[in-house]
Amino acid sequence: MTHEVQGVVARHTGAPVSVETILVPDPGPGEALVKVLACGVCHTDLHYREGAIGNDFPFLLGHEAAGIVEAVGPDVQDVAPGDFVILNWRAVCGRCRACRRGEPWYCFDTHNATQQMQLTDGTPLTPALGIGAFAEKTLVAAGQCTKVPEVRPEAAGLLGCGLMAGLGAALNTAPVRRGQSVAVIGCGGVGDAAIAGAHLAGAARIIAVDIDDRKLELARTFGATHTLNSRTDDPVAGIRALTDGFGADVVIDAVGRPETYLQAFEARDLAGVVVLVGVPAPGTTVELPLLDVFGRGGALKSSWYGDCLPSRDFPILIDLYRQGRLDLDSFVTETIALSEVEKAFAKMHSGEVLRSVVVF
């Protein structure tokens, strides 16, 4: 059986997205059909529309999603129809060298659904991050479904990408320890999630850095103890001044530009940690003084999806949300209809929102 649903499609580089009828097949072996309840509008979707992540148009956009499993393939055991799930884009294989050595969060052979969703004329769609959740229903690999207790889907779905990236950068990649000083450069959704993660970990001092005073004020609600506007103040000098002249124990770059990475590198203490979680543009390079790389010690790390294991981390974070210790609701700036995704891209680009969330 094929399901006809409405979904947001990017047909050409830079062209406005459109809501179109798409065909979603019933799940085959290893697959799950999910009724999408909510899906966040992420910068990654805009990157797909702009052609910055491959050229496999047309794309079915959307990936920060929560929903209900409607059907599963004949061999699926971990999820069942009726389960409330958060979708993830790293379904671990359990067989690659990372999985075999006990580090499945680095899985090098993650997988997606085998069958393709299509336009009504038979054109195959490329789902964003293997998910394609700006649609009433989507087909994914069963391993991309993480069962959690049912909560507000607009909030839960954001763990599927951006918020997990930021939280995981602080909690998993760094990892931040109780009493440490942390600076976060870039206070969008990912940066604010990193601030929330540092707060959860018990950081004593959390310094938010951005060029927008509105974002800096919001960062305080997620746990920032100090703020620096890098448009008017030198962030490196500011971070050092707020850490007794030493620099922060952990600096998280949630922007991913050469200048912000250099700021992070220069603003960390001896033996400190730099974590890159902002996604750099293709072709971006950075030049570092090698003697300082050696002399400062510590570590320069990249955070892949917050180095998360969805089956482990999503339920833990949802429990913290239910306990009132992790405010996922504050990341939801507005809820919108499927037809408003293009407008949401403009708002996101201008910094008006942390997350617009499509609700079905």
Rank of each mutant, 00 (worst) to 15 (best):
273 V>W: 11
284 T>D: 13
290 L>P: 10
265 F>G: 02
264 A>H: 03
274 V>F: 06
265 F>E: 00
295 G>F: 05
270 L>R: 05
298 G>N: 11
263 Q>H: 12
268 R>Q: 08
267 A>F: 04
288 L>K: 08
265 F>V: 01
291 L>S: 15
284 T>K: 11
275 V>G: 01
288 L>D: 12
273 V>A: 01
283 G>R: 09
268 R>H: 05
270 L>P: 00
270 L>F: 12
277 V>D: 06
262 L>Q: 09
291 L>R: 07
289 P>A: 13
265 F>H: 02
282 P>A: 15
273 V>H: 11
284 T>E: 13
287 E>K: 15
277 V>N: 03
265 F>T: 02
290 L>Q: 05
264 A>E: 09
286 V>K: 15
283 G>S: 12
264 A>W: 02
279 V>G: 10
281 A>I: 07
291 L>N: 12
270 L>D: 00
291 L>M: 13
293 V>T: 13
271 A>W: 09
265 F>Q: 02
292 D>N: 14
267 A>Y: 05
293 V>G: 05
276 L>N: 03
291 L>V: 10
279 V>A: 07
272 G>C: 06
267 A>N: 07
275 V>P: 00
273 V>R: 08
267 A>E: 05
284 T>Y: 09
285 T>D: 14
262 L>Y: 08
290 L>R: 02
291 L>K: 06
293 V>F: 10
299 A>L: 04
264 A>R: 07
294 F>N: 10
276 L>Y: 01
297 G>T: 04
299 A>C: 04
292 D>W: 11
281 A>M: 14
291 L>C: 12
290 L>G: 08
299 A>I: 00
298 G>H: 08
294 F>L: 14
281 A>T: 10
270 L>T: 03
296 R>E: 02
271 A>M: 11
295 G>Y: 02
278 G>T: 06
289 P>T: 07
264 A>S: 14
279 V>D: 07
269 D>W: 03
288 L>N: 14
281 A>W: 13
267 A>C: 03
280 P>H: 13
287 E>Y: 15
262 L>A: 04
284 T>Q: 13
293 V>H: 06
287 E>G: 14
286 V>I: 15
290 L>A: 14
